[in-house]
């Protein structure tokens, strides 16, 4: 589930250095880039800071205030691009779009600030501005590499939808020696089964309505019986 931008202030040691990573789950630091400004949504740039790219997330930590830092999981990064057009943004930057997990109603420029408190989870855009624009292409490539390390997690309950998107999973399972015919033919059968199920449902509803009428009659009869007893 995409969660968007979040505050991040867990730093190694006495708060001087690198962000704390989830080493137990295999998270590794891929790249460190000092002198990077971060721009969240339409807010003014924040600098100076250091950009840390791990196998799971992007972390920006302020060099000035040890309590200030932001993190975005690669799972939440929908898109990233090198932007050098001064009309689009004054400084060359790595532009990213962030999936927030909330409804799509929020427009790009909607004010993410409520009562003076910034709701980070609603931020849909983030720009990273390195001091040296020549670093942008390398940053772009690192982002690509890490994005590929973070495919969508497989959600069990959405199995019937997943099969469309997970040709690679099928490939993996075939590689593991499963019978490909069985695997591939299974899902379409399910889909057909579901549409049949709908027909059944329609018939069941019809039957229910018939039953309802019967029940109404029965109730009336019950009433009659009751009234005759009174």
């Amino acid at each position: 589930m995409a969660v968007g931008v979040r505050l991040f202030s867990e730093r190694v040691g006495e708060g001087g250095g690198e962000p704390v990573l989830d080493a137990e789950n295999g998270e590794e630091l891929m790249h460190v880039r000092p002198l990077v400004s971060v721009v969240l949504g339409n807010r003014p740039p924040q600098s100076p800071g250091t950009l840390y790219i791990s196998t799971k997330k992007v972390v920006w930590l302020s060099d000035v205030d040890k309590e200030i830092g932001y993190a975005v999981d690669f799972l939440s990064l929908s898109l990233h691009a090198v932007c050098r057009d001064p009309e689009a943004y004054p400084s060359p930057c790595l532009y990213t779009q962030i999936e927030t997990g909330s409804d799509e109603d929020e427009s790009e420029d909607s004010d993410s600030e409520t009562n003076g408190v910034v709701d980070l989870s609603k931020i849909t855009e983030m720009r990273l501005v390195p001091s040296d624009p020549n670093q942008l292409d390398q940053l772009f490539e690192i982002f690509c590499e890490c994005a590929e390390l973070n495919p969508e997690p497989i959600e069990e309950e959405e199995e019937e939808h997943n099969w469309v998107f997970s040709a690679d999973q099928i490939g993996d399972e075939v590689a593991e020696g499963e019978d490909p015919d069985w695997r591939i033919s299974e899902n379409p059968t399910n889909t057909i089964g579901h549409s049949n199920g709908d027909h059944d449902l329609a018939r069941t509803v019809l039957e229910l309505q018939i039953d309802d009428q019967r029940f109404e009659d029965a109730e009336e009869m019950e009433h009659d019986v009751n009234s005759s007893h009174q």
Partner: peptide
């Protein structure tokens, strides 16, 4: 060599040269 189809709606995306899009979106 990307360009946004609806440039009026997304002016800031106007001239993004190369672009990585996550498959799931």
């Amino acid at each position: 060599n990307t360009r946004v189809v609806d440039q009026d709606k997304y002016p800031h995306m106007l001239s993004v040269r190369n672009c990585f899009i996550r498959g799931s979106v």
